Amino acid sequence: MIQIQHLSKVYQTKEKVVKGVDDVSLDIETGEIFGIVGYSGAGKSSLIRCLNLLETPTSGTILIDDVNLTKLSGVKLRQARLKIGMIFQHFYLISQKTIFENIAFALQAAKMPSNKIETRVMELLEMVGLSEKRDVYPAQLSGGQKQRVGIARALANNPSVLLCDEATSALDPNTTMSILRLLKKINKELNITIVLITHEMNVVKEICDRMAIMQDGKVIEEGQVYDIFSNPVQPLTKEFISSVVSYEIPDTVMSTLAGTLVKITFKGEVAMEGVISDTMQKYRVKGNFLHGSIEYIQERALGIFLMELQGECDEVEQAIAYILEQNAQVEVIRQHV
């Protein structure tokens, strides 16, 4: 388990003092994939670099498996860092070394006996699907393959925590998905805790269990990914989610609508039921679908629909009340005109 308690990181520039991380407290459970989302400058990279003390926190405490990293130094800190792997956006492979040698370098630095290094490197290459690339150089690999090497290197010393700093930002969408599937596989097979920094909500939606949104060095919202997607609270969170699930209606269409415009959110099994058709049959209301989809987050359905409801005001109100009774959320965007 990772426990971050009142963590702050302050940077002193010539002009001013900048709070990169501002009194952040988070608990990340063992074996979960936790996403930290924010725009550039939000403090998310400073936070993740504090987790393995690449950045020294100004104040606060970091405990990993009950070990207080902020109290360690020298040999003890180096030993603790061996249990924290890290992968980066730009790979940072040694161009003059083969793929085998890049991964072996991490094991040599940890003073693994030379007679065990080859076996371990081949295990790691098998894990990331690059066994046939052991003797090639980084320049001969695609971006996705380079990141797979970075993952293998980060896992070399059997860490309990894997930190991912914008690990897919330099990759195309298809390659991103393959890397995310690999991370999910590693998480399940090794029960390794993954902390993933990103500005891409699609990444969080795909593999994370829980998430936090950062702004100006602070955590402004956190919770289960499904709960945040289905009921975001903060304006910034809503903005991020709209980049994945957008329901904007063109003004030319809006100007033609005379009925009541509603946004209906169905969670879990309710998303798969015929609530809307039941409502139309039960009440003298016509429904005009304007936008909608069913997303699958953490293997749970989340249905969001924009509809125009046409009919007498009392019938529309009764229809909305009925939908609410079916454990759906209804937001009236514009009343009947």
Score class of each variant (00 low, 15 high):
Met122Thr: 11
Glu101Asp: 14
Val121Lys: 06
Ile99Glu: 04
Leu82Phe: 00
Ile99Asn: 02
Tyr92Leu: 12
Gly85Pro: 04
Lys83Ile: 02
Gly74Tyr: 03
Gln108Met: 12
Val128Lys: 01
Phe100Val: 11
Glu101Asn: 06
Phe91Ile: 00
Ser95Thr: 13
Glu123Asp: 15
Gly129Phe: 07
Arg78Asn: 14
Ala106Asp: 02
Gly129Val: 10
His90Ser: 15
Gly129Glu: 03
Ile84Cys: 07
Glu101Thr: 06
Ala106Gln: 02
Asn115Arg: 09
Lys76Gln: 12
Leu69His: 07
Ala109Asn: 12
Ala110His: 06
Gln79Val: 08
Gly74Phe: 01
Glu126Ser: 15
Asn115Pro: 06
Gly129Thr: 09
Thr98Asn: 01
Arg78Glu: 08
Met112Gln: 14
Lys76Ser: 15
Thr70Tyr: 03
His90Arg: 12
Leu77Cys: 09
Gly74Ile: 06
Met127Arg: 13
Met122Asn: 15
Leu69Arg: 01
Pro113Asn: 10
Met127Glu: 13
Arg120Phe: 09
Gly129His: 07
Met127Tyr: 00
Leu77Ser: 10
Ala109Ser: 13
Ser114Asp: 14
Leu69Pro: 05
Phe100Ile: 08
His90Asn: 15
Ala104Asp: 03
Val121Met: 04
Ala106Phe: 04
Leu77Arg: 05
Leu125Glu: 05
Leu107Gln: 07
Ser114Phe: 05
Leu69Asn: 01
Gly85Ser: 07
Glu123Phe: 05
Pro113Ala: 11
Lys116Tyr: 05
Ile117Gly: 06
Tyr92Met: 12
Thr98Lys: 08
Phe91Asn: 01
Ser73Thr: 13
Ala109Leu: 15
Lys71Thr: 14
Phe100Asn: 09
Pro113His: 00
Glu118Leu: 03
Phe91Met: 06
Gln89Pro: 04
Thr119Gln: 15
Ser95Glu: 14
Asn115Thr: 13
Met86His: 02
Glu126Asn: 15
